[in-house]
Amino acid sequence: MEVGSTSPLSIQVVSDGRIGMENQALGLAEALQRLSPSSNISVRRVKWRKAFDRLPSALKAPWMLDPSSDRVFPATGEPWPDVWIATGRATLPLSLMARRRSGGRTFVVQTQDPRWRTGDFDLVVAPRHDRVEGANVLSITGSPHRVTPERLAEGAKAFADRLEALPRPRLAVLIGGKSRAHDLPEAHAAELAEQIAAAIAAAGGSLMLTFSRRTPEAAKAAMTARLSRWPGWIWDGTGANPYFAFLHHADHVLVTEDSANMAAEAASTGKPVHILPMVALKAGDKFDRLHADLRAREAARPFDGTLEGWSYEPLAETERAAREVLDRMGRR
């Protein structure tokens, strides 16, 4: 199959349903759909029964899935999908079964580091900072995602009245939270907010801020208290999510260093990406490697309190991964 083929594909996306995970596989599926118009995408969400969730992948069987799970394998007589794209630990045994049961009919792609023999999949699309190696591995900067200029523009329409009138430069501020590698205690959040406020004041700009589900409540409160007096919008999590609209309208993107997904998505816009420091819980983390990769591509720099602009070629890693899928399918 040639890259950019117009032959439609049936593409099945499989995840545990968590948005951040599902969007990686769905983003790659949508990139394939753009290269092969008229392709159809189906989304399946799975969950293992609690008693079997921690079993090694090699020991799991479909009957162990929770009844709330979607059916992932075709019924007798139904065709297998052309492409299976899965992400996350919960999907690993199912991906292995799909490759075997389809008899090679289905091209099986696993995103992220599967922590499994990479040769058991047709392709593993893994973040470069995870250092996954193998003949079947494509390393990319960050993870696949759904951000495209067209999707951002479409997502911005619903919020145009609120955002287009904001003074420039507009800062999209994307705040993460506590993880195994980073923390955002109240005092540090307050310090970040003061630095952001000073940058807004110096530039005469405005703020578009969104928090993660992982952001501690104390950190939210500290940042909101210090930034709410400035022009803009601090989204409180109610109503439609303006995340795409924030990226579309931003002149600068500030993102905390704990999120590989948000950093990669921001870098796909071609806008200056400023990395906000957090409290590190362990040194030499993979996020350090990601940020070094983004700096090498001139997409991101550490936030120094100023809003210096720069330009770079927007990252198009999801599209690159989709082309690799089509190329390998054609050579198989």
Rank of each mutant, 00 (worst) to 15 (best):
A240W: 03
E217V: 10
D122P: 09
A316C: 13
A153Y: 04
Q195A: 14
E78S: 01
A181H: 05
R168L: 06
H182Q: 08
A156G: 14
A219P: 01
P149E: 06
A219S: 01
A189S: 05
M64I: 12
S7N: 14
L9G: 03
L123V: 13
T106M: 04
G119F: 15
K220T: 13
F211N: 10
V3I: 15
T106P: 00
G284W: 10
A31M: 01
S95N: 00
A61D: 07
A158D: 15
L307W: 01
F52G: 11
T148W: 04
H182M: 06
T148K: 01
V72W: 01
E308Y: 13
M223A: 12
A240V: 13
G17H: 07
V46N: 10
G309C: 09
R226N: 10
T238F: 09
L315N: 12
E186Q: 15
S15D: 02
P242W: 06
D16M: 08
I11L: 11
V83Y: 00
V279I: 14
L35R: 12
L35T: 05
K157D: 14
K220E: 14
A263D: 03
K271E: 04
V125L: 03
A221P: 13
D288Q: 11
T215P: 02
R117Y: 06
F52P: 08
N261H: 03
W84D: 12
L207D: 03
D53Q: 13
W233A: 12
R295A: 11
D16Q: 03
V3G: 12
D327A: 15
L307I: 02
T210V: 11
A300D: 04
K220H: 07
E265T: 03
F244P: 03
D293C: 05
T76L: 13
V132K: 03
I19M: 13
G88A: 07
A197D: 09
T318P: 07
H188T: 14
D183Q: 08
G330A: 05
A187L: 12
Y312W: 13
L326G: 15
A266W: 00
A225E: 07
M21R: 03
E150T: 07
G330V: 07
A263S: 12
R168M: 07
